[in-house]
Structure formats: structure tokens, C-alpha cells
Amino acid sequence: MLKQGNRRLARAALNAPRLFLRAAARRVRQFFGISLARSIGGDLATVLFLSFIAAFMALPLVYVFVNAFKPPDELFLFPPRFFVQNPTLENFSDFAALIENSWVPFSRYAFNSAFTTSAATAAHVVFASMAAYVLEKHRFPGRRLFFSVVILSLMFSSEVLFVPRMLVMNSIGWMDTYWAIIVPAAGMPIGLFLIKQFMASVPDSLLESAKIDGANEMYIFWNIVMPLIKPAWLTALIFCSQQIWNNTSGAPFIRAEQLKPIPQAMSRILDGGIGRWGSGAVVSLFMVSVPITVFIIAQANILDTMTASGLKE
């Protein structure tokens, strides 16, 4: 009897720290918002693995960053070196001087970039979300057809579209206007597709109860749907703003120098010859840092959603 009691006591004593650890781990995971069916070892291994890959993926960012601090002899060094040996701020002062003397002020290019990027991104996010909302939640004739056209259009090479787009732009007289960049971006199929895929997770019962309470469609869309699909439109925002900022498709439609965005100004700076490479590296750093700032702010705002939580019966 006594022996058995002892054994039970010993087992309990042995188990206590384990139970305590398990409880502690659970508190830690709850604090960080980690789901339950996980082991600590697995979590650690995950972080280690991710860090290893991250070191490899971070190369471009590091490279653009260190390049801006390289003196000219290192920019032209053969064989090229990845890291900077004698960092200098010379490139930044060169760039400042260049800005002051440029024919079209750099601030004008910066304004063009900032304006077209923010206007196009705002239009794209709002219009694509509106379209995605009705395509997923309303039952009207033609919605399936429209959505399949959107998906099909993604598969056509955008390079060839350049000629017909030019024709269209010319015939409606939008060459050399901001419209030429903003409106095509507003109708980009990728954003609609992306947002529509998230729209399915918005519960119908929530929309119906709002309707019963007398809310109109615009109110439902703006005050109920948009907050719920925030991760979706933030992702579309990141993507669209980067596309427009890097000016991948709008370039040929703008010929007037004072309407051109920074990437074109960049080529003008590099046209100034080899002596301008240092300034070019600074512009590259600037070009990369703006979307990354937007990206970090947007990403940090993608939180856990509680779509279904408000609906417990």
C-alpha cells in the first residue's frame, strides 16, 4: 500500500514540471497568437529554417543598400564586390547637386510618381473591391461570364498589348496625361481576382442582417465588407502601388518630360554618363525604399481577422 502510494507520489512529482512547462508553453503561444496543435521543437525549427532562407533572399535589398554607399572606384571594380569597403556619402551629395541643376526639377518627377501611384492605387483598390463584392455576393446575370473573362485576360502576354493600348490611348486623346497611367491601373484584373477570392469568407448572414436593419448597399460595402477583407485589399494595395511606382506598363504613354515619373528621370541621370552611376545608386535606393515602407506598414496591418466571431448564436 505504502509502496504504491509512494510510487504515485513520485510519478506526480516527476510529472509536475512537465505539466508546468506545458502550461507555460501554452500561455506563451496564446500570447503570440499561435494555434494550439503545435510542438515547441517544431516552432524553433521553423524559425531557424526561415532565417536561413531569409539570409539568402535578403541579397537584393542589401545589395541596393550597400551600392548607394560605394565610392566610384568600387562601383566599377572588376571583379565586382558585393559589400562596400570604404563607405562614403559622396553619392548623396552628388545626387543633391544634380537635383538642383536639373532641367526638369527632380521634385517634379517625384510628384508625378507619387501622384500617379497614389491615385491609381486608390482607384484600383476601391473599384476592384466594389466589383469583387457584387461578383461574389450578388446573383445577377453575367457575373460568371465577367469573372471568367477577368481570369482569361491574366493569361495574355502584356507585352503584345502595348500596340493596341497605344491605339486606344491615341484615339481617346489620353497620350501625355495622368489618365493614361491611372485608368488602366484601376482596371487591372489581378486585384479584382485577388480580392474576389477573399470575398467568399465574408459570411452571407452578416450581410443579410445588415440589410434587414435597413443598411443600403454602399453602407454594407464600405462599413462591413471592407473592414472584413482588409488583408485582401492591403495585399492588392501593396502590389498595385509597386507596379505603378516602378512604372512597368505606363511608360510609353507619357512623352512630355514634365509628366514623367522617377524611373524615366533615372534613365536621364544615367544618360549623363559613367560619372553619374553614384547618383544612380542613390536613386535606386530611393526607388526601393518607398514601396518597402508602404509594404511594411501594410503588412503590419494584416492582423488576425475574426470574421465568424461576431456571429456566434
Binding site: 500596340v163 485608368v183 488602366p184 482596371g187
Partner: peptide, 22 residues
């Protein structure tokens, strides 16, 4: 349709039409 219109307009003119022309 009103909700769809702003996107559909831009999409039709600058993506669908160019694809058809191509």
C-alpha cells in the same frame, strides 16, 4: 451593375479591347 461599372469600364477599354485587337 453600378458597383461593377467603374472597374468594368477601365478593364474593358484597356485590357479586353486590346486583347481582342491582338
Amino acid at each position: 451593375y453600378l458597383f461593377l461599372l467603374p472597374f468594368a469600364g477601365a478593364f474593358a477599354v484597356f485590357t479586353v479591347l486590346p486583347v481582342c485587337i491582338s
